[in-house]
Design a protein around this nucleic acid. Structure first.
Length: 109
RNA sequence: UAUGGGUAGUGUGCAGUCGCUUUGUUUUCAAAGAGGAAAGUCUGAGCUCGAGUAGAAAGUGGUAACGGAUAACAUCCGUCGAGGGUAACCUUAGGGAAAGUGCAACAGAAACAAACCGCCUUAUGGUAAGGGUGAAAAGGUGAGGUAAGAGCUUACCGGGCACUUAAAUAGUGCCGCAAUAUGCAAACCCUAUCACGAGUAAGAUCAAAUAGAGGUUAAAACUAUUUCUACAGUUGACCUGGGUUGAUCGCUAGAAUUAGCUAGUAAUAGCUAGUCUAGAUAAAUGACUGCAAUUUAUUUAAAUACAGAACUCAGCUUACAGCUACCCAUUACAG
RNA sequence: GGUUUCGUAGUGUAACGGAUAGCACAAAUGACUUCGGAUCAUUUAGUCAGGGUUCGAAUCCUUGCGGAACCG
């Protein structure tokens, strides 16, 4: 299955205003608890600062792959979170990125 | 060998593990899955809609040597002209200045007006030799001629007109050249020619949702930008506000592509045989590992050009590390 | 998916195809002052990038880059 994603820009701004803030060298994260959800929702933001379309796509795919392969994915419940990517995502080794994301996901509990 | 010019190609490769999209069989298997520019949106078409058809005019925009190719084009091929280069070759928006309007700074006597200075004769005329500036000044040079001069005459160069050539060009003939004299049309413009507008978020169907919402107008309004004409049509026309934002189709077999043959200088066209080759929707085509290749530093590290489909084709423009093949020019060096 | 428009010193702006690209603020140096401000004098720095038309381009044409607005 593809990862379930956020679609509306109002949801993005809601999470960024109310959610808990997490800072890493590769991304800024916001996480929010929502009791109505069954599983979870992800939103990934890759702005034009990152580079051209190839680099933006690559950054999104790397983070998506890191979330998918993490061991915590089955424990996530009733949670929405947003990742704002930085330019360092493209250069970092994959294992470091995965560790940071796992730290961020477990941060809320 | 070196330097340069042209044409064409390639755009890291192989394997493994875990995933994503589509299709098929059928519930865990198989097949396929970014580019030469997918980019810019600069042209041309297909396709769809805009509530009928035909004709004319205005306006707006594009194009502009000649012949051909093409579905079409601002593209391509061949030829000519102009410019650049020793050359191979490259560049070229390349109609009209006697339809009209406008502009030509500074300098210069003068910027399109034949006036001024001058020269000669003589007392009213003849002149365009000289007046050197400028991007540009009533064809140029030599000889004759004259009062002084002048295409006034002549030779060469330049130019105009007519005819031939498929056409541009070229050739031949005629004309002393104020042939209706300079430059700018990438200034307005004129001539010829082409173009209705909007775009797949076009548009179609199903489901859901509001609400038979409000206002203006009345024999008037509308019917492919505008105006006019003819026939035909509708009963409404115009404006404002509100609701929905799901699914399916459109969506990929095509002016497709690979190989060969034939015609043509070529662009290209025709024939025969084979192939099926992404179709997503906030948007799949990925992540990691091993071996090999190239480059850089240097012996284990780093990097591997430009760049990511969004309806589809034909082009153009721009970006692009490295590597490969063929042809040509120059003759610097070596044999 | 389309259409239009803009780009001039650090900032805000002028400029008919012909000026050495003008003005104001800012900056720098000096003078004045015990010091600073104000004032006076002087200086620095610019046509978004490439190509073309023209005798001559900030201006006209074209290709690219960056920004803004509008329509759907």
């Amino acid at each position: 299955m593809r990862l379930p994603t956020l679609k509306k820009s109002s949801e993005f701004s809601q999470i960024r205003n109310k959610g808990h803030y997490f800072k890493s060298t590769y991304f800024n994260g916001y996480i929010l608890h929502d009791a109505d959800l069954d599983s979870f929702l992800v939103g990934i933001i890759a702005s034009k600062k990152l580079g051209n379309a190839v680099e933006r796509n690559r950054a999104k795919r790397r983070t998506r792959e890191a979330i998918r392969t993490s061991s915590l994915i089955n424990t996530l419940n009733q949670v929405k979170f947003v990742l704002i990517l930085k330019k360092t995502v493209l250069k970092v080794p994959f294992i470091d990125l995965k560790q940071d994301i796992e730290k961020f996901i477990s941060y809320e509990k």
